[in-house]
Design a protein around this nucleic acid. Sequence first.
DNA 1: GTGTGTGAAAGTCTTCACAGCT
DNA 2: AGCTGTGAAGACTTTCACACAC
Lengths: 173, 173
Amino acid sequence: MSAAQVRKDLGYLGQFGRPGVGYYVPDMVKRLRKVFGTDKVWDLAVVGVGSLGRALLRYKGFLKRGFRPVAAFDIAKSKIGKRFGGITVQPMSQLESTIKDKQIKLAILSVPAAVAKEVAEKLVDAGIKGILNFAPVNLSLPEQIAVVPVDLAVQLEQLSYMVNAADKRSPNR
Amino acid sequence: MSAAQVRKDLGYLGQFGRPGVGYYVPDMVKRLRKVFGTDKVWDLAVVGVGSLGRALLRYKGFLKRGFRPVAAFDIAKSKIGKRFGGITVQPMSQLESTIKDKQIKLAILSVPAAVAKEVAEKLVDAGIKGILNFAPVNLSLPEQIAVVPVDLAVQLEQLSYMVNAADKRSPNR
DNA sequence: GTGTGTGAAAGTCTTCACAGCT
DNA sequence: AGCTGTGAAGACTTTCACACAC
């Protein structure tokens, strides 16, 4: 990134520095946090406690960035009541009431693709505003619901394309 | 995406359809697979068998997209020899020989941030060409090594920004 | 001197519109 | 009629260059 690029981008969000002086970083971080919405901690619901869901529940890095899993749901009786990363897995029947009670706005959807759409709709009914979608399907929810898809196969494809292209430029193996 | 957009993008990669007729999909898929480098199956090494590494080893969706974990490495003695998703965890000391023997080109790096750089350098020495990096650090490797970073906190920030922005437009809770 | 904010220029990407093919 | 490939126009982004502040 060029310096000019950074200045321009910041310019879209407001004025963050003082000409001739520079940026007062602590203040700037605070203001940018507000823009990103991470000036407050966001509570997360994790739906689907397969190995990926468990990994996310255990991941300690979220809190540092302003995100905190506070509830987990799964359909499997064998998982209900178990704790992962300090969160007790609840049955799907409690999804709506828990999300409403705790006023959870963001959910991580880590269920099998076959049931992702149906579960996503339940989340919307429960009042969820944004979904981080790990299932390889298009959810097509109401427009005001934010959905960010995460497809690791796509990232791997990007990698394989890059390696392929590099190899074509200089095939030195 | 508009139809024009798709035509333009395809145009950069070659000619895929016949004017007046359309696209012959099976052929097109084959040719695009070749462009992406997914006409062959890519073997993957998973380095760091924490909960995320285990989730990736178990994930069945990769094979459908042309990726196959074939080796796993970890530093913890308690994990070495255990099997996850059909792959036996090997000690780090075998990393170089296994990668060379099996001619593995792509690696998934799911180790703690503190050791990510050091492990990444070992991977490069072993002959890895591309790294899918889950550690929240900049690896700064030789230019010809492809690195794709995956930072879930970034995706969550995107989500929180979108929810925040939607909320500002119409604060109907 | 150092450093930000910002118009203007350059560059890139997307959309439009249509020629040419079946 | 229906569809792709592609130059031209339009929209958007990045880079440049400099006024202005300390």
